[in-house]
Nucleic acid binder design. Structure first.
Length: 607
RNA sequence: GCGUUGAUGGUCUAGUGGCUAUGACUUGGGCCUUCCAAGCCCAAAACCCGGGUUCGAAUCCCGGUCGGCGCACCA
């Protein structure tokens, strides 16, 4: 079993991830999040909200998952999100029809399926695999189609990304933020893509969760007001140049922006923010890098684009976040299709006085004389210089006809107007997170099958004598292993387990009382009194419960319990009084485990 | 979508054209247990779906579904 299999096996068994519709044989590209998975995912999303909504101030909106056609015409998904496919009659192999045609003509990408079929027929293109003939080409659109309303209804699509919601709501958002750049909004939710062949479990789904943020910024100024926060932060950058050399480089953010590796501060800040988020939820920094899109893989309108990638054992480096400067492409596209100006008015620091030469044809006189031609005459006048307009008789040519006008038919003057600002189409910085992939990443990076003997020794839980025994035993056979999910306590689905040492009423009663206290503190708590204490610790290790509380007979005497730390397996003894606050601080405030109580050195009994 | 390969309790697995289909772990009930899984007793739980061949199919054949891999695809 490779690591992916091990992680998926555990995830399935323990209620993190299940294949959807298993009862009926399943369906590819869909996964259920079980009780623990759902909780873990929600915690990840909640931390994401802390970063983007609370810290950055980009409020969350919620738009329908079904969109109308216009939206995706504007976004380019109707036209561009489909691939023309073409299958060989003989061997059945499928090819991109436009790729087949590319060699014999230019602009193959602009043709539709019908046209492509025609070209393939005319040019006699055959299967590169077997030389067979091709069937007709057809469009495979990656969007799920549906019908809105009864009957023929209106064509609708399940959204292939959440981003469009923020673009469509741009005007409303702009007013909400009192028309002051930069502003942004986020959306967390489901998106849908009818993948041709989804694989790799949760890495490529047909229904998946995105967390996207669209930040609208002033195109003339891409500095970031909080840049200093991360300026000295070192990131692993796999820039275009680094990719040529084959080795990512560690670089401080300031250097990267100064040297032009990252296009500008705003993008750089967002790389660092992503780095901070991913690290916080437990992505291993060593297995995290930022890879720059190569020129030819970047959308034509984008200025710069970086993917956060994590290393997985089976799939190698997997993209989990895309951070792009999408310029004004999206707003302009929606502006064009909706015929609405999508821009903000930006005031200058000082109003500008703009002097210009203004020509005002006197339409009251031109109209009756020139009738239908009056407009053309007026336009011609606007093109004249001051010197020409100053003459007694003004000569112009309209549609090849010489026309002479008297000077009273036009006024002109040097005019100075005060301009206090201008309309700007903002640029968009877009961090786009694939939550399901991030979810898998936290599972794989948290997963560990560790040697218990070695771990116990490391944590000082074994005596020297036993250690020696262990060493000689280790040569013979592999020691006992325990499966541990080293979730950061911020995302762990179960935060505390309460375990009476023995299943006896005098211990279970106070244990249940403690459970109630912890629940009151809003901690996700589990109670378990079945089997031996060791088994229960292991069970909780497997689901990544960071802390376990054990009630023993000493508890009855001095009102203390032990707290066990999942990773080190060490224990401290702490008073029951105030225990909920101690745990809250351990989980949310980064309080050190050693400070939580007095050391409780119970040596593991190897009997 | 094409090719290839697989599918047995919750998990991992044994197995053969033929009686009540292995085993381990897990789970539940009980016993025992004063801090790190595998002690004892009891119990629950499976041959992916449909068709065919056959006296008889979980086993052989065909199709489907799902999983792995390769090709293609991958905002």
């Amino acid at each position: 079993m490779d690591k992916y299999e091990q992680v998926i096996e555990l995830a399935k068994r323990r209620g993190f991830l299940w294949n959807s519709f298993e009862l009926y044989g399943g369906s590819r590209g869909f996964y259920d999040y079980g009780p623990l998975g759902s909780t873990l995912k929600r915690r990840i999303e909640q931390i994401w909200r802390e970063f983007y909504v609370i810290q950055e101030g980009f409020m969350e909106i919620e738009c329908p998952t079904i969109g109308i056609e216009d939206v995706f015409v504007a976004s380019g998904h109707v036209g561009g999100f489909s691939d023309p496919l073409c299958e060989c009659k003989k061997c059945g192999e499928a090819f991109r029809a436009d790729h087949l045609v590319e060699n014999v003509m230019d602009a193959a990408a602009t043709l539709n399926a019908e046209q492509l079929t025609q070209v393939i027929r005319e040019k006699g293109i055959t299967c590169p695999e077997c030389g067979g003939e091709f069937k007709d080409a057809y469009e495979f659109n990656l969007m799920f189609k549906t019908t809105i309303g009864p009957g023929t209804g209106r064509q609708g699509y399940l959204r292939p990304e959440t981003a469009q919601g923020m673009f469509v709501d741009f005007q409303r958002l702009s007013r909400f933020y009192r028309e002051k750049l930069p502003f942004g909004a986020v959306q967390l939710g489901k998106s849908f893509r009818n993948e041709i062949a989804p694989r790799q479990g949760v890495i490529r789904l047909r229904e998946f969760t995105q967390a996207e943020c669209e930040i609208f910024i002033d195109p003339r100024d891409k500095s970031h007001p909080k840049f200093e926060r991360f300026a000295d932060k070192e990131l692993t950058l796999y820039s275009r140049q680094a990719q040529e050399e084959g080795e990512p480089v560690r670089m401080k953010l300031r250097e990267a922006v100064d040297q032009g590796v990252i296009a500008h501060e705003f993008l750089g800040y967002n790389l660092a923010l992503t780095n901070a988020f991913l690290t916080k939820i437990g992505i291993d920094p060593v297995r995290l890098r930022f890879r720059q899109h190569l020129k030819d893989e970047m959308a034509h309108y984008a200025i710069d684009c970086w993917d956060a990638e994590i290393e997985t054992e089976r799939f190698g480096w997997v993209e989990i976040v895309g951070i792009a400067d999408r310029t004004d492409y999206d707003l302009k596209a929606h502006s064009k299709v909706s015929k609405t100006e999508l821009a903000v008015y930006v005031e200058y620091p000082e109003p500008k006085l703009v002097t210009s030469f203004v020509v005002k044809p006197n339409m009251g006189k031109l109209g009756p004389i020139f009738k239908g031609k009056a407009k053309a005459v007026a336009e011609a006048l606007k093109g004249l210089s001051e010197a020409e307009l100053s003459k007694e008789e003004i000569h112009i040519a309209v549609a090849g006809e010489e026309i002479t006008l008297s000077s009273d038919m036009v006024d002109f003057a040097e005019e100075t107007v005060k301009v206090s600002g201008e309309s700007l189409v903002p640029h968009v910085i877009e961090p786009s997170y694939g939550i399901d992939r991030i979810f898998y990443g936290t599972l794989e990076h948290a997963y560990d099958a560790e040697d218990v003997g070695a771990k116990a020794a490391e944590s000082g839980l074994k005596g020297q004598e036993e250690l020696d025994e262990l060493e000689s035993a280790a040569e013979e056979e592999v020691g006992e292993t325990r499966l541990v999910m080293h979730f950061s306590s911020a995302v762990a689905p179960v935060q505390v387990a309460v375990l009476p040492l023995l299943t006896r009423k005098e211990l279970t009663d106070p244990a249940k009382a403690i459970l109630a206290k912890l629940m009151d503190k809003n901690l996700m708590t589990a109670y378990d009194d079945s089997g031996t204490i060791g088994r229960r610790y292991r069970r909780n290790d497997e689901i990544g419960t960071p802390y376990s509380i054990t009630v023993d007979y000493t508890s009855l005497e001095d009102k203390t319990v032990t707290i066990r730390d999942r990773d080190s397996m060490r224990q401290v003894r702490a008073p029951i009084e105030g225990l909920e606050d101690v745990l809250y601080d351990l989980i949310y405030k980064g309080r050190s485990f050693e400070s939580a109580g007095k050391p409780f050195n119970f040596q593991i009994n190897s009997e």
